[in-house]
Simulated scan of single mutants.
Amino acid sequence: MAAAFGTVFMPEMAITWFDGSNWSVPEMVSSNSITLHPGAHVLHYSSTCFEGLKAFRHEDGSVNIFRMDRNIARLSQSSRLLGLPALDEATVAQMIKDTVARFADEVPAPPGSLYIRPTHFGTEPAIGKAAVPSVTSCFFVLVSPVGDYFAGGDKALRLLLEDQGMRCAPHMGMIKSGGNYASALQPIMRARETVQADQVLFCPGGDVQETGAANFLLIDGNEIITKALDQSFLHGVTRDSILTLARDMGMQVSERELTVDELLERAAKPGCEAALSGTAAVLTPVGTLIYQGKEHAVGQGGVGETTRKLRQALNAIQWGQADDTHGWLTRI
């Protein structure tokens, strides 16, 4: 039986420490080598952020990282919004490339990939700084070879629409921080237990936003509708990539407010589709919406052709089977 996605790690990682004045010279160390003071800021006040991106092996044997610059920019933004020490983006990029290059031979062929997890967290030992950021920190790059997220076959997901609660505090939404995922965990666990939902689509006050770990897209004919970017939810790199490819295909992209009422009305149309976008699953079809005790099929309730077409178009670029016209790949 194959290992669960993201549970196998390479034995070494790149790491650097900020002492309050300077960053240490990055080095490769054992992946289990981090030692933290029990009073470390991150353990008490969640001063942590991370990214998720992938490297892919092409038929010519080369290894290519997908949209590294966009992920690094978002990591820098998350660090800044959390009050963490500023990252040097050039150093971060080099650490990512060095780590991928070190384990290039371990990058699986498509549909597998090397999942890359850059992480930044506060290390200052101070339990009295609940309202003050950590002045010291650690940044590392961990990698994990992963297989096909769809190894079990395409499965249209079941989403519970939650219009009372929200995934996280609105001013924290655009930060990719562990705390945001933790705050969504209890609603997701309840939804799985009570209505056998795969995920919760958070719609505070009827405003359709995102699930616990992915952006939401509604596909109605030639139009894709998704929430306009603001600070309340994560600005997904996969979301941006899918919308870019949709425009390339001549589709209409509408980034605007979407209410639960409009979502359910459109979802009832025979050809309507919905999907979740994210690094791991790329574009996952949604077949059922559950709201106020009633189930609503999205279109025919299965995997939509446009969802499949968009996912295949993105995979083709990532796997080197289509031209990278947007300059998204960094060759190692």
Rank of each mutant, 00 (worst) to 15 (best):
T7G: 05
P11F: 00
E12R: 07
A14K: 11
I15P: 02
G20I: 03
W23I: 01
W23D: 02
V25K: 15
S31T: 01
L36S: 04
A40Q: 11
H41K: 02
V42M: 15
L43D: 03
H44R: 03
Y45W: 06
S46W: 08
T48R: 09
L53N: 02
F56K: 07
E59H: 07
D60H: 07
S62Q: 04
R70P: 03
A73E: 10
Q77K: 06
L81T: 02
L82G: 11
G83C: 06
V92I: 01
T99D: 09
A104W: 07
V107D: 02
P108C: 11
A109G: 05
A109N: 09
P111R: 15
P111Q: 14
S113H: 04
F121L: 08
I127V: 07
G128E: 12
P133F: 12
S134H: 05
T136G: 11
T136S: 14
S137L: 07
C138I: 06
L142E: 03
S144V: 05
P145E: 01
V146N: 06
G147M: 04
Y149F: 06
Y149I: 01
Y149C: 06
G152L: 12
D154F: 07
A156Y: 11
L161P: 01
M166V: 00
M166Q: 13
A169H: 05
H171E: 14
G173I: 11
M174Q: 14
M174F: 13
K176M: 09
A184F: 01
R192V: 02
R192E: 02
V195Q: 07
V200K: 06
V200Q: 04
L201Y: 13
C203R: 04
D207M: 12
E210N: 01
N215S: 14
F216Q: 11
L218G: 13
L218E: 13
D220W: 08
A228P: 05
F233E: 00
L234N: 00
H235N: 12
S241A: 15
I242Q: 14
L245N: 06
A246S: 10
R247Q: 15
M249F: 13
L258F: 07
T259H: 08
T259V: 05
L263Q: 08
P270D: 09
G271L: 08
G271I: 01
E273K: 02
L276E: 15
G278R: 02
A281G: 11
A281Q: 05
L283T: 04
T284S: 14
P285I: 12
P285C: 13
P285H: 12
V286N: 13
T288L: 13
L289Y: 15
E295R: 15
H296Q: 12
G302C: 08
G302N: 10
T306E: 09
T306R: 15
T307K: 07
R311H: 05
R311S: 04
R311N: 08
N315C: 13
N315H: 14
Q321G: 09
Q321T: 11
D323L: 12
D324V: 02
G327S: 12
